[in-house]
Amino acid sequence: MTDHHHDHHHHDHSELSETDLRVRALESILTEKGYIDPAALDVLIETYESKVGPRNGARVVARAWTDPAFRARLLSDATPAIGELGYAGRQGEHIVAVENTPELHNMVVCTLCSCYPWPVLGLPPVWYKSAPYRAKAVKDPRGVLQDFGFALPATTKIRVWDSTAEIRYFVVPMRPDGTEGWSEDQLAELVTRDSMIGTGLAKRPDEVTR
């Protein structure tokens, strides 16, 4: 029932408001003390909410699918290769790209916190930072894939990369069949965030409207 549902939301909202007030107070204390400039906070938020996100990584993958020389550079030394497209910096200082094949599926996790390649994927989703994923990925990655609604062939090897230092891993998913002759822009539409973490596959051509 709608009203009942609404009550639950209201309850959640009240709990959030407590943290909301705490953060507002913190921002005003720090601003008053001259430690932060609220305008800088606005730029940071704008950057990660609308500029830096998985569309960046999708462009890297689409280029790797269409340009064999770029693919070779990406797989041998990813940081400068990704830099060619203009993506670099914080939480992507040392990137390693790993490629999925019919024999090997790669999956990325950070069991100790939430390490994630920000310049190509943006900020991590909640599930990536959550206890279930951090606990399960290194022990039962096939079970994780089931949670995401798909299964790999039983004969495919799985390699899970636990980002325990400052190397950031980035998965190059397999290019879907039936995309011969597609442009980089068209291909980028098939590349999902999850496919670059290894908890998903690139979309099939029939999953997008061309």
């Binding site: 206890a131 279930p132 951090r134 606990a135 079970g143 949670d147 995401f148």
Partner: peptide, 20 residues
């Protein structure tokens, strides 16, 4: 924080169209 392999947390719950 050191969660690798810990039991009891249940399934991973992806959120469709998750906001940042």
């Amino acid at each position: 924080h050191d969660m690798g392999g810990a039991a009891g947390f249940g399934p991973v719950r992806p959120e469709p169209n998750e906001p940042v």
